[in-house]
């Protein structure tokens, strides 16, 4: 740990401000609490909101895992993990079960979370109604009055145009029958994991200066219609590395002739399955 920084980078006054916002966010699940987001030593869009929430929650005893679209080894994940190794001296891990704090960009790990774990989401646009109503003064009033008809109109327009709800990520949810919330741009495949989760789920939007939260075991329902029920979707394939059929898959182009493969977006899930002997269609053991 670098001695030049206070524990977890942020000064104590900033952490207190973020911590107060986090507690109010837990008290009113799904409501977006404004907070005085700080400049962080990384650009907006790289998870400055998530980093501030993580910095406010970390203790020296924590083990941190950082994922970017499910992967532990991409630039965003590696740089945030290094940042906290350097400024907080915490242990890090790539294994979901070993981590007490997991910061994530746009995925929920495949392995079910447990009590004692905290999942921190990086959020670009926290306001689910923003693309329907650009004025903050209006969206705030819509939340206050539970006026969510516009959101259903948007989903209905999807059905009118495409025959089904075409929204595939950042799919809006209703929290405990009250606030409509943006679950961050996770694929709608992950939406069911938001509900009744034993872990604490915290959402940080740095540029937009909002924090919101889901306490454990909170009821989270994806918006839908009786005749067009919500459906979590994924590619109709198995992972070509580990053979998993139940995980969310990335499609990867492998040559110039239209060749492609599917593999688990959750790298830890895929690696632990391969370690356990599961083999997919294009696994190195098969291809060699």
């Amino acid at each position: 740990m670098s001695e030049a920084y206070t524990f977890a980078y942020l000064d104590d006054a900033t952490k207190r401000m973020i911590r107060r916002a986090l507690l109010k966010a837990l008290a009113v699940p799904g409501y977006q609490v404004p907070f005085a987001s700080r400049e962080m030593p990384m650009p907006y869009g790289w998870g400055t909101g998530g980093v501030q929430v993580t910095a406010a929650c970390l203790t020296p005893e924590d083990t941190l895992k950082v994922i970017d679209q499910g992967a532990d080894d991409t630039t965003n994940a590696v740089s945030i993990r290094r940042f906290f190794e350097r400024t907080a001296g915490v242990a890090v891990s790539e294994h979901t079960a070993e981590a007490s704090v997991i910061q994530t960009r746009h995925r929920i790990p495949e392995k079910p979370l447990s009590e004692g774990q905290i999942l921190v989401y990086q959020v670009p646009i926290p306001e689910p109604l923003r693309f329907l109503e650009p004025r903050e003064s209006e969206t705030r009033k819509m939340h206050a009055l539970e006026e969510y008809g516009l959101m259903h109109v948007k989903l209905y327009e999807d059905i009118a145009r495409h025959g089904a709800i075409a929204t595939s990520y950042a799919y809006p949810v209703r929290v405990e029958g009250r606030y409509v919330m943006d679950p961050s741009p996770i694929p709608k495949f992950d939406n069911p994991k938001l509900s009744n989760n034993p872990a604490i789920q915290l959402f940080g939007a740095g540029r937009e200066q909002r924090i919101y939260a889901l306490p454990p075991y909170t009821q989270v329902v994806s918006l839908d219609f009786e005749d067009h029920p919500f459906e979590p979707t994924k590619a109709e394939a198995a992972c070509d590395l580990c053979g998993a059929t139940e995980s969310y898959l990335d499609e990867v182009i492998v040559d110039d002739a239209g060749g492609r493969m599917f593999c688990c977006s959750d790298t830890d899930f895929c690696a632990s399955r391969r370690d356990a002997g599961h083999i997919g269609r294009l696994a190195p053991e098969v291809v060699a």
Binding site: T6, F7, A8, D12, K15, R16, R19, A56, C57, L58, T59, P60, E61
Partner: peptide, 10 residues
């Protein structure tokens, strides 16, 4: 202060 507050906040 930073670590005591961190543990207390958790």
């Amino acid at each position: 202060a930073p670590t005591d507050a961190a543990r207390a906040f958790r």
